[in-house]
Design a protein around this nucleic acid. Sequence first.
DNA 1: ATATTAAATAATAATGATTACTATTACTGA
DNA 2: TCAGTAATAGTAATCATTATTATTTAATAT
Lengths: 137, 137
Amino acid sequence: MTKQRKVILEELHKVTSHPTADMVYEMVRKRLPHISLGTVYRNLEDLADQGEIRKLSIDGTRMRFDGNPEEHTHIRCIVCGRVDDIHFAPTVSMQDSISDNGYKILGHKLEFYGKCSECRKKDEIMKAKEKKRKSKD
Amino acid sequence: MTKQRKVILEELHKVTSHPTADMVYEMVRKRLPHISLGTVYRNLEDLADQGEIRKLSIDGTRMRFDGNPEEHTHIRCIVCGRVDDIHFAPTVSMQDSISDNGYKILGHKLEFYGKCSECRKKDEIMKAKEKKRKSKD
DNA sequence: ATATTAAATAATAATGATTACTATTACTGA
DNA sequence: TCAGTAATAGTAATCATTATTATTTAATAT
C-alpha cells in the first residue's frame, strides 16, 4: 500500500460519482501533484483485482470506478451521464431463476437508466421557454 | 437505406454473437470489399439511434452490437468474453420497485456473468492434467 | 549505517477504438 | 441532362488505455 494507492482509494471513498480514471487523476493530483496517470490506472486496476473497488463498464468507451465494492445497482442519466447508486432488493434471487444454460453464474450487473431530476428540471425550463416563444408569434 | 446499411443490418441479424464494430466490418467486407470502417461505425450508430439494433457496453472499452433491439438480458463469460442472450422473466416489474429517487426510469440493462460451458470444460481438462502431473511426482 | 535488491513510480511512447474530415461518388427531382 | 443533396471511401486526428524505461522509493541483508 503505497502513498499513491492510499490516496487514490481515499479519494474514491469520498465520492459517490463513479468517476472515470481521468477524473480520479484530477482528484488525486490536488494532493499529489506529481502523480502520473499511468500510476492511477495501474492502482485502480490492482485495487479492483483485490476487490477493494469496482470497475464499471457502463458508458461505453471509458471505464468508471466505484469505491464501494459491494454488489449493488446503478442508475444512469441518459442526458448528462451521471451515475448514482440505488437501493434495489430483488424479490427472488435473480441468479437462481436462470440455471439451465450451461453457464456457472457468478454474479450480475444491473443498471437502470432514465432521466435524473436535474435534467428533468432543465426539460421543464426548455418547454416553458418554447411555449413563451410560440405565444409571441 | 443504402446498400451498405442494408448489408450491415442483415449481417447483424445473422449472428447472435454480439460482435464489435470491427467484427461487423469483417463480416460485411466479405460482401462489400470496399466498405470503409467509418461507414460501419456511422451506420451502427444510426441504426442504434433509430432503435433497429442495440449498442451494448458490456466489455469495458469497446462497444458491442446486438441485432435484436428488444430489451433482453445477456450473459457474459468472464473467461473468453463471449456474450449470449438468455431468457429472463423478472417476477415483478423491476422498474416499479425503484421509484422515489428523482429519476424518471426508462429502462434497464441486466447482465449476468459467469463461466460458459466450454470454458468450464477446459477447466476440467486442466484439472485432470494437473492431477496426472502430480501423481507422477 | 551502508550496500543490495526488488518493487513502484513518473514520464513518455505506443496501441487500439472511435470520431472527424474531405474529396469523391451515388441518388433525386426539376 | 444537370444541380443539389446525402452517403461513402479513405485517411487523419482524437481519446482512453496500456506498455516501456529510466529513476526513485522502500525493504532487506550485510
